[in-house]
């Protein structure tokens, strides 16, 4: 395995395009090193992007949104007070990935590129309407996060296409997000189901909603019909119950060692309901 430390993304793209064999990128490494250990999909070339200027920065853009570098760690996100205040759901999704040790290294972009339908940080990014900046030999484009995963372990990124940053839109008043997951233990498990909800309110009534389900399909899925249940409502028990059922109905999980299909279908509704309530409370300003 050849280890590369490019000092710019264009250099990384060049290395990638000219490399023979499997190329992987190293940011936090918390998935790549596990694959190396197990001996699955061991790359021939590993491109460490951490020496590229700016990759560990969290920047407030002029338009009021945020740009989060590709190698920003979970700890950096959690410690960023303003970002955490504006996007608590997105930050808590990242924070749920692994242990304190993992948090020092793991990144949003890594979590996204690993392509797992159970990735904890991805539903929150999608619910937030986040995009990623993708650089390739033909320049930089902005792609919706929800368009990146295409199946278990698969993304639509081609050879020489590298994500440089995650972009979050400007946060407005009376908006709130939340991410919750279900795991058998209290920590250290992969989500059995997960759900992110992002809401904006007007006079305590939901004006827009995005609901994203994790671990109940081959990839993280946007649950538009579930979000539609919430529009124009102020989230009483009745609406929550309808919403919960809708999420269960939309879920298309499989049975595996982490949970049965039946369990996932049931519990995604429970988790979605709890996440919606949390997001709503946050949007109201009740924390």
């Amino acid at each position: 395995m050849q280890y590369h430390t490019p000092s710019s993304f264009s250099e990384a793209v060049t290395i990638s395009n000219s490399a023979d064999g499997l190329v992987k990128y190293l940011a936090g490494g918390t998935d790549v090193l596990v694959q190396l250990k197990i001996g699955n999909n061991s790359p021939d070339h590993l491109i460490d992007i951490k020496k590229i200027p700016g990759v560990k920065e969290i920047a407030l853009r002029e338009d009021g949104g945020w740009t989060i570098g590709a190698a920003v760690s979970g700890v950096q996100l959690t410690n960023h007070k303003k970002l955490s205040r504006e996007w608590p759901g997105l930050v808590e999704g990242m924070e749920l990935v692994g242990s304190a040790q993992i948090q020092s290294r793991a990144t949003l972009v890594g979590n996204l590129c690993n392509g797992s339908p159970a990735a904890d940080s991805v539903p929150g990014m999608i619910a937030a309407g986040a995009t990623v900046s993708v650089v390739s030999s033909s320049g930089t484009t902005e792609v919706l996060v929800e368009d990146i995963p295409v199946g278990p372990g698969l993304t639509n990124l081609g050879t020489g296409e590298i994500i440089t940053a995650v972009n979050l839109p400007k946060r407005n008043k009376h908006e709130g997000d939340a991410y919750l997951r279900f795991i058998p233990r209290t920590e250290m498990d992969i989500a059995v189901v997960g759900c992110a909800v992002n809401l904006s309110l007007e006079n305590e009534v939901i004006r827009s909603a995005k609901v994203v389900l994790g671990a109940v399909g081959p990839k993280v899925e946007v649950a538009t019909p579930a979000a539609e249940c919430l529009l124009g409502e102020n989230l009483d028990e009745n609406i929550l119950s309808i919403f919960s059922d809708k999420c269960s109905e939309l879920a298309k999980p499989i049975s595996d060692k982490r949970g049965s299909e039946e369990f996932r279908k049931e519990v995604i509704g429970v988790i979605a309901k709890r996440a919606a309530k949390k997001a709503y409370d946050r949007a109201l300003g009740n924390k």
């Binding site: 058998p184 233990r185 920590e187 250290m188 060692k257």
Partner: peptide, 16 residues
């Protein structure tokens, strides 16, 4: 065996 790792062979952690 499908869960030959501490990730899925779930021994109790401190927070449990």
């Amino acid at each position: 065996l499908q869960n030959a790792a501490f990730l899925d062979y779930r021994i109790p952690v401190a927070s449990d």
